[in-house]
Design a protein around this nucleic acid. Structure first.
Length: 562
RNA sequence: GCGCCAUUAGCUCAAUUGGAUAGAGCGUUGGUCUACGGAGCCAAAGGUUAGGGAUUCGAGUUCCUUAUGGCGCGCCA
């Protein structure tokens, strides 16, 4: 039952569309004022009345309804208090009936959404800086899928560029195959860092690097073998982390994939007269210098990042016919995407408006920015390991008899890190510190998981007695707050999709957990009368459903015990 | 110099998109486990929503402006 719509329908106002009334209907600031309220400022003048008068007028015209406890005018507001038992019955029936589907819908049926996220760089460490990006992208992936969309997750690999020439030079000079096999990307990172320090003293190294990159482009066997090897090492290592995070992709078409797809695009631009030559390079200028020019071909004929992205956008439209294509990338690249989208618009692609840069903040360390070149990074795998170890330590202390400790610690530790990334608006910068990341108290993933485990433990302990449910056992204020928090969850999922903002789901799940813990403190479940116990158990199960579904969208597991 | 973004409690952040007395967590202080998990709960202290102006019944939210910080601005990605 959609109570909001129901209320809007019974507020029959002449000259006012029910949909307009519904749009204005909101939750009151304070739950004690009711479940819904209607501010009357907006259309009061249309009736030649003051808002307060209109509110009174509306109340006087509302008849008796079995789902409505009361409607009262408080100043310019009409406050509606719903019958708690009706709402409780309705919400419980819906949540428990839908189960895993609670929060899902079919609104995206028939539409495809491409999400470009994570996009690892070959031969570079997968560090904390990528965690925000990967968590947000993966969460959006699951959110859209839950809403019925067909979703294509794309890992736009950074597998092209002169840095691979540098890496080959470094490897041939200082690398050891066996050691790198053993140490993986860390081994590659060490020689990459060494290259940069050495190149300071000896600039010829850069020439050698360029030469080796040229060999990759020309298909030299040795160069390709090494390049493929670097790629293999990186993907193997990154895949291990993706497994732990529950992240998947449908395509790994990265930069090198578009090598042969740029020329036709450039030719078209040339033919349309959009491509202009400047200092030997080729670029697209924007009308009224809306943005700085977008450089697409270097004076030495080489293509650029923007050129590949241009080809990639066109390829994706042709291949997937997306409804929207999201680029989950830090706000650093804001201008790049504005230019990219504008070039496509100028090219006469109406779908350029369906491209969205989902910009997020940047991760730094307490002692400054992350930098691969100087080796100033925190490996994501280390963070996950540390978090899992911390969780294990707590479990050893608090639940020494727990079976499967390692798996639970993994779920809690990793959950803490993911939740920390997704709890705030994506635009916020993150200063990573182990101190904050390993805090499991308060508004954290483990808090929500703990709440879930409490629920699970109750359900395991309490047998239902008979079928009768006495809803009076969940008709008080704390129960109502919990029920409202649960009922608000599906809307949070929709909103998260609309705003590309997974934090809305995380916040909703947190609301449920906080409301539950309050409820839990003041309600005896195991020892209640059978019919009351049954009703409360239903509410516990509904709480679990909302938490389980919500955390699942974020990529966080819900152990039954921890 | 120009552009984009941010600025809310000591710290990290919310605020149903323009609605009622701006809410949480962390930290601090003080309470709270023989009813089901204390990774919990309750309470206190903490605010000129960076400053100024405008719009209107009403602004943390929209517009202008100033300040501070971050990011970016043709041959990296």
């Amino acid at each position: 039952m959609d109570f909001k719509k129901l209320l809007a329908d019974i507020v029959i106002l002449q000259y006012v569309e029910p949909s307009e009334v519904e749009a204005l209907m909101t939750r009151p600031k304070d739950a004690s004022m009711g479940d819904w309220c209607l501010p009357c400022f907006k259309f009061a003048s249309r009736f030649g009345k003051s808002p307060a008068e209109l509110a009174k007028d509306i109340v006087s015209r509302i008849g008796a309804y079995n789902f409505l406890e009361k409607a009262e005018a408080v100043g310019p507001y009409v406050n509606f208090t719903l019958d708690k038992k009706t709402v409780a019955a309705d919400v419980l029936e819906r949540v428990l009936g839908e189960g895993e589907e609670f929060g899902s819908s079919e609104e995206g049926a028939g539409k495809t959404i491409c999400i470009d996220y994570s996009s690892v760089n070959i031969a570079k460490p997968f560090h904390m800086g990528h965690m925000l990006n990967t968590s947000i992208g993966a969460a959006l992936y699951r959110i859209y899928r839950a809403l019925g969309y067909r979703v294509v997750g794309i890992n736009h690999l950074g597998d092209w560029g002169t840095q691979f020439g540098k890496l080959i030079v470094a490897y041939k000079k200082w690398g050891d195959r066996a050691e790198i096999e053993k140490r993986g990307v860390r081994g590659l990172l060490d020689i990459y860092v060494k290259f940069h320090t050495e190149a300071e003293k000896c600039p010829e190294l850069d020439d050698e690097a360029r030469a080796w990159f040229k060999k990759i482009e020309d298909g030299d066997a040795e160069a390709l073998e090494l390049f493929g090897w670097f790629k293999e090492i990186t993907l193997k290592e990154v895949g291990r982390v993706y497994d732990r995070l529950g992240v998947t992709f449908d395509s790994y078409a990265g930069e090198s994939f578009y090598n042969d797809k740029m020329k036709p695009v450039l030719d078209e631009l040339e033919r349309d007269g959009l491509l202009e030559e400047s200092d030997g390079a080729k670029l697209v200028r924007f009308k009224n210098d809306k943005y700085p020019p977008c450089l697409l071909v270097r004076s030495d004929g080489a293509t650029l990042y923007a050129t590949r992205d241009l080809a990639a956008a066109i390829y994706r439209k042709n291949t997937y016919d997306f409804y929207k294509c999201l680029y989950v990338v830090a706000y650093q690249q804001d201008l790049h995407f504005k230019q990219l989208f504008e070039v496509l618009r100028m090219k006469g692609k109406p779908w350029a408006d369906d491209l969205v840069h989902v910009a997020h903040g940047m991760v730094s360390l307490e002692d400054g920015a992350l930098s691969t070149r100087s080796g100033h990074v925190v490996f994501l795998e280390d963070v996950l390991n540390t978090a899992a170890a911390k969780a294990l330590e707590i479990i050893d202390k608090k639940s020494p008899d727990l079976p499967d400790k390692a798996a639970t610690a993994e779920a809690v530790g990793v959950g803490a890190i993911i939740f920390g990334m997704l709890y705030n608006s994506r635009i916020k910068d993150v200063t990573f510190s182990y101190d904050k990341a390993l805090n499991f108290d308060g508004e954290t993933g483990p808090y929500v998981q703990y709440t879930y485990a409490r629920c699970a433990s109750l359900v395991a302990k309490c047998e239902r007695e008979g079928d009768a449910e006495d809803l009076d056992g969940i008709a008080d204020e704390d129960s109502r707050a919990l029920i409202n928090a649960i009922a608000a969850y599906p809307e949070a999922v929709r909103m998260a999709a609309e705003k590309y903002e997974p934090s809305i789901v995380a916040r909703s799940v947190m609301d449920v957990a906080q409301a539950f813990n309050k409820f839990y403190l003041t309600h005896n479940i195991a020892g209640a009368q059978p019919a009351v116990k049954n009703a409360r158990l239903s509410l516990v199960e509904a709480t679990m459903t909302a938490i389980r579904n919500g955390l699942a969208l974020l990529g966080i597991k819900t152990p039954e015990k921890m």
